[in-house]
Amino acid sequence: MTQVVELTEAAAYQVKEMMVNNEEEGSFLRVGVNGGGCSGLTYGLNFTRERNEEDEYLELHGIPIVVAKEDAGILNGTKIDYKQSLMGGGFTITNPNAIASCGCGTSFRTAKKEGTPEKC
């Protein structure tokens, strides 16, 4: 069975740094999907201290991760990486379920869920 999300070592290192810098040790990394963006759906990455009964839970590279059950199907097989460049760094998200994305790469849609696109 495919893992809901994959977190690379580089992404895990960055998440750990952010947890320390933002005093979020002991929190979960919540990975989710929200409506919006040019293509209808956007990714959400944030810290939470709450874990709901319906959440899927996994731990990768020492990072506790929760994904809402309703988002798990949309995110199934998604890879979260962190890339550093001369212009700075940022997370990259590769979702095999996305069939379209906007030019800037921050929003997407899937065959089963389109979300609510915003005007760009």
Score class of each variant (00 low, 15 high):
Cys104Thr: 07
Thr8Gly: 01
Glu118Asn: 14
Ser85Pro: 09
Val20Ser: 13
Thr42Gln: 13
Tyr43His: 09
Gly26Leu: 13
Val15Cys: 08
Leu60Phe: 01
Met19His: 10
Glu114Asp: 06
Asn76His: 03
Lys112Asn: 04
Tyr43Trp: 09
Asp71Arg: 00
Glu56Phe: 13
Asn95His: 00
Ala111Met: 10
Pro96Phe: 08
Gln14Leu: 10
Thr2Met: 01
Val20Phe: 13
Phe91Gln: 10
Glu53Asp: 14
Lys79Phe: 01
Leu60Arg: 02
Asn46Ala: 12
Thr94His: 05
Met87Thr: 08
Ile74His: 00
Thr2Gln: 05
Glu59Leu: 03
Cys120Trp: 08
Ser39His: 02
Ala12Leu: 03
Asn46Asp: 15
Val67Asn: 07
Lys79Ile: 07
Thr94Cys: 03
Asn46Leu: 11
Phe28Gly: 07
Lys119Ala: 06
Glu118Tyr: 09
Gly26Trp: 12
Ala111Thr: 05
Glu114Trp: 06
Gly26Lys: 12
Asn34Gln: 12
Ser39Glu: 14
Gly103Phe: 06
Ala68Cys: 00
Arg51Cys: 03
Glu56His: 08
Glu25Arg: 13
Asn95Tyr: 04
Asp71His: 15
Tyr57Ile: 14
Lys119Asn: 07
Val33Met: 08
Gly105Arg: 09
Lys119Tyr: 04
Ile74Asp: 00
Thr8Ala: 07
Glu70His: 15
Gly103Ala: 11
Asn52Val: 01
Pro64Lys: 12
Asn22Leu: 14
Leu86Thr: 09
Glu17Asn: 14
Gln14Gly: 02
Glu56Gly: 01
Glu70Val: 12
Thr78Gly: 08
Gly105Val: 07
Lys83Ala: 13
Lys83Val: 15
Gly44Arg: 14
Thr8Cys: 10
Pro64Trp: 02
Ala100Val: 11
Ser107Leu: 04
Asn76Thr: 01
Ser27Arg: 09
Cys38Ala: 15
Leu58Ile: 12
Val67Ile: 15
Asn34Ser: 14
Phe108Ile: 04
Ser107Cys: 15
Met18Asn: 13
Lys113Gly: 00
Lys112Glu: 11
Thr42Asp: 04
Ser101Gln: 14
Ser101Ala: 13
Asn52Met: 13
Gly90Phe: 11
Leu75Cys: 03
Lys83Arg: 14
Ala10Ser: 15
Glu114Thr: 02
Phe47Gln: 12
Glu53Lys: 07
Asp81Phe: 04
Cys102Val: 00
Leu41Glu: 01
Asn21Met: 08
Leu60Gly: 04
Thr110Lys: 03
Tyr43Gly: 03
